[in-house]
Amino acid sequence: LSPNRLPSVKAGVSNDYEVTLKFASVLNLPTGADVMMNGLQVGRVTALNETADGVDVVVGLTKSRPVPANSSAVIRQNTPLGDTYLGLTPDTNAVTTEYLRDGSVIPQERTTSPPTLEDTIAVLAYFVNGGTIQKVQDTMGTLNKVLPKVKDVRRLATTVAKDLDDLADNTDEIDRTLTGLDNVAKSFPASATYIEHVFSAGGVHYFETVAYTLLRHIATLLPSVGKVFTGGLWASPLLNSLADTLETAKPMWPAGDGTLKATNSFLGDTLLPFLKNPKVTVTSVKASGSNKQLLGDTITVLRILGVLQ
């Protein structure tokens, strides 16, 4: 007589075939515990057999819910003090799928034993008393100091929301841009022959010829622009002559002030008054001897000028 032989009041599934799962330790896994896969019950634990390597857990499975042969097993609890059950997890990366059948064995390499309750409590105690909570609190305080103020975050969120609304309202422009890019991309295959020709050996030769022509001919025709090329050597004698001229005129510069004053005096005192009232006053006419012809010619000239009537 054993409590494990008493009928369970829980709703179960049919026991169609049995499978053995090898565990290093099962802790408090009871006989009759549920076997779950993907949230559904697929069987129950029927027996626990101690071995030299650990514990063999015999489970009864139902045929209505086949279990893949590559599944792994783990003993779990929903809560620290909750019921213990056995969970099966199929390998989703397997290419082919075979299913467990009566007498199949899941090796210890694909089973995971749960930690002891004492280890769990020790980890929780270290978490509480080891300063982890205080560190989390300090971290949150640092984040609160670093992050901007609430009003700034709201303003930023408002700006982002407006930008997203504008983006949503102008999706037709984005579609038009994408359509244009798509058309450009589609034009490349149609122009593949031309593009290949441009980047071929002939295209490279063309660009080299153009560059050589520009440097050899056009640059020679315009020597005054930029550097002095082959045709620009004529500027050297001109520059030398200009330098000699400046050297010759150098002694004149010290007397420049007197020359400037004399020029200003002539322009202001003599030339400008004459230009304002230009006239010539004849005060006397003298002739040597009795040269009456010279006197008559002089009188004629003066009458022409309007001096004599």
Rank of each mutant, 00 (worst) to 15 (best):
K10A: 10
T177D: 06
G82P: 00
V280K: 13
G39Q: 06
T20C: 05
V42T: 09
V184L: 15
L156Y: 07
A73C: 05
G296W: 02
S64A: 14
G226Y: 06
A249D: 02
A219S: 06
G43A: 11
G180M: 15
Q108A: 08
N277T: 15
R303Y: 05
T171Q: 13
N15F: 00
D53W: 03
Q309F: 04
E196G: 10
G296E: 09
A125K: 14
S25A: 11
L294C: 05
V9Y: 10
Q134L: 15
T245R: 08
T248E: 03
K286E: 06
S14A: 10
D102Y: 04
I299V: 11
G268C: 13
R216F: 09
G103P: 15
I106N: 05
A262D: 01
T31Y: 06
S187N: 08
A190M: 13
R155V: 09
G226H: 01
K250V: 02
L222K: 09
S224Y: 02
L156P: 02
A161P: 00
L156F: 13
R154Q: 05
A255E: 10
H197S: 14
V184Y: 09
L272S: 04
T179G: 09
Y85N: 05
S290R: 15
V42P: 01
N15H: 13
F23S: 12
D152H: 14
D257E: 11
R155K: 13
A122K: 03
A73W: 00
L147M: 12
A192N: 14
G131A: 09
L246H: 12
L215S: 08
V210G: 04
A211V: 02
D102K: 08
G39M: 08
R303P: 00
I304Q: 05
F274D: 04
K22S: 13
D244K: 09
L86A: 10
T92C: 07
P189H: 12
I304A: 06
V307L: 05
P66E: 04
S265R: 15
D34W: 11
G87M: 14
K292C: 14
V146C: 06
V19C: 03
L88Q: 01
A157S: 07
K149H: 12
L215G: 06
G103K: 10
K135T: 15
K145C: 08
R110Q: 10
P115A: 09
A185S: 15
A33W: 00
I304T: 01
R65N: 11
